[in-house]
Design a protein around this nucleic acid. Structure first.
Length: 492
RNA sequence: GUCCCCAUCGUCUAGCCCGGCCUAGGACACCGCCCUUUCACGGCGGCGACACGAGUUCGAAUCUCGUUGGGGACGCCA
């Protein structure tokens, strides 16, 4: 099978419906479409599927576009709004009606619903019985005279089969007796999804329809619309569905499902995109970390998997850490700035005027961050001296005999260093010299010092901390810890 | 219920189309060791899978059938 057909102009689209924020499943679909377009120099189109007025919200369109932009999925055409193209659909529907390829249906909703339920209960496929397709002109006139509500249905061939070639699943066929005359125009004369989707794909000259697996049954219906329209169907590629931890189609129940939520959790768009790309596709070699350009170069529909992947946050988090570590310090700080400001750790002015100092902080924490937001918990001590001391650390280091003496001696040594000469090297030298003179291991000084300076037993290298804090802050914090130690009972 | 799709470590996957190179490879997670002032990073190692049953074949993760399991679709939603 011709997988990536590049003998024609490549035009793909992402067609979200603005009923909610951008869903991770839709985002994944968008990533695949975008990669495919970029790989082949094609066109990536954004089309908003808002034919259902009651479920479409303008603010969701905004949110969806924000999320796409955040992911770096820039579109070349659109957004097109289906709600603004109703004329096109109605013209197409009228044409089908004239050609006898569509007809009016006067069946009532309740009636249809009842038949459907009954059929399913009886173990039959709940298809429309086509009663209105066989209406005589008189019967039709009678119903019109009654003023009955009507919809328009497509008249599909009653015999034969409908087939399409799927680039992921292979050729798929379905007997037309398993399909029915579905509604194309609602009672309010708004067109339905399967109809507009096909009409638009024809009109927009879409070459490849890349979308979720949950659309395979729709595809048969849409192929029928293409035929009715005398149009050639595009290539289809149905992606496996992303499953939640419970192995069900991922939904709100199992946690975050909107791209915005992941953004707010501190995930990087590059990492998120990389992760999404790997959900149902692999480059064929051992690479897992594939930045945008590598993704584009490696991408191909022929390597799309057919098994449904589970959305595994652990791997996403790992990837996020990789991207954070590889990021330029300045860029990282730029991204961290709003987070620091919002957490109240630093003001814009402080960050901008002490940029170099901030860079040191970022650098010291960089390889420890999994999320951008980790900076808050991990870096707070750099900005604030009024922290509590970690309980286990207190037990282990502060309640030990001689700790006060050690810290006092250390403070004395630090105090001897002029503030402007106090840095990583000089502070380390001072501590090491003190340790040696006391016949102690440096670790014996470092552990209590770390606790005194940061409140924690873990964190960046000791002398990165002393350097960043500066002499006076170190002295203040040591003094504060000594006060604290006094309040502790005698060591046991 | 009916129809469709899928089936390799806990998870993402390579291998499958063109059977032998597979004592099934990589990654995440987990565990251990190393590095080391802690944590993290990094390095090394460990744990861990071809759903089951038939068949075809000298030989099957790879081909066929069945079973089981999972997923999806059956709307005047998209």
């Amino acid at each position: 099978m011709a997988a990536d057909n590049i003998n024609q102009e490549i035009r793909v689209r992402i067609a979200p419906s603005p009923s909610g924020h951008l869903h991770v499943g839709t985002a994944r679909t968008a990533v695949y479409n975008w990669l495919f377009a970029r790989k082949h120099g094609g066109t990536f189109i954004l089309r908003i599927e808002d034919t259902d007025q009651s479920r479409s919200f303008a603010e969701m369109t905004e949110s969806i576009m924000d999320s796409l932009k955040w992911l770096g999925l820039d579109w070349d055409e659109g957004p097109y709004f289906q709600s603004k193209r109703t004329e096109l659909y109605q013209q197409a529907a009228d044409r089908l009606l004239e050609q006898g390829r569509a007809y009016y249906c006067y069946c009532m909703r309740e009636e249809l619903e009842a038949r459907r339920t009954e059929a399913m209960a009886a173990g039959r496929n709940p298809l429309y019985n086509r009663c209105c397709r066989r209406l005589t002109a008189e019967q039709r006139a009678a119903r019109e005279a009654e003023g009955r509500e009507k919809v328009m249905r497509i008249a599909i061939p009653e015999n034969g089969t409908t087939t399409f070639e799927d680039l992921v699943l292979g050729p798929l066929t379905k007997g037309n007796d398993e399909l029915d005359d579905f509604i194309i125009l609602r009672a309010d004369w708004n067109p339905t999804y399967n109809f507009v989707c096909a009409v638009d794909d024809v009109e927009m000259r879409i070459s490849h329809v890349i979308r979720g697996n949950d659309h395979v049954t729709n595809t048969f219906k849409q192929v029928l619309v293409y035929r009715a329209l005398d149009a050639t169907p595009p290539y289809f590629a149905h992606l496996p569905l992303i499953l939640g931890q419970d192995k069900k189609k991922i939904s709100k129940r199992q946690g975050a499902v909107a791209v915005t939520e992941y953004r707010d959790q501190g995930y990087l768009p590059e990492a998120f995109m990389n992760f999404l790309a790997l959900l149902g596709w692999s480059p064929g070699d051992d690479r897992e970390y594939l930045p945008r350009t590598e993704l584009i170069a490696a991408f191909g529909l022929e390597r799309v998997t057919s098994t449904n992947p589970v959305f595994d946050t652990d791997k996403l988090t790992w990837l996020n850490g990789q991207y954070i570590r590889d990021m330029d310090d300045n860029k990282l700080l730029t991204l961290l700035q709003p987070i620091l400001m919002e957490a109240g750790l630093a003001t814009r002015l402080e960050i901008e005027t002490r940029w170099h100092w901030m860079l040191k902080i970022i650098h010291s924490l960089k390889e420890r961050l999994h999320f951008l937001t980790d900076i808050i918990a991990m870096g707070a001590f750099y900005f604030r001296g009024e922290f509590g001391y970690e309980e286990q650390g207190v037990a282990k280091y502060f309640r030990k005999d001689g700790t006060s003496e050690i810290l006092t001696a250390l403070a004395d040594e630090f105090a001897k260093i002029p503030e402007e000469r106090f840095n990583q090297e000089s502070s380390e030298q001072a501590l090491r010299a003190l340790a040696e003179s006391r016949g102690a291991k440096v670790a014996q000084l470092i552990h209590p010092l770390r606790l005194a300076l940061t409140g924690s037993t873990k964190g960046p290298g000791m002398f990165e901390i002393t350097d960043i804090l500066g002499r006076d802050n170190c002295l203040k914090r040591i003094a504060r810890s000594l006060e604290y130690i006094k309040t502790l009972g005698p060591p046991e």
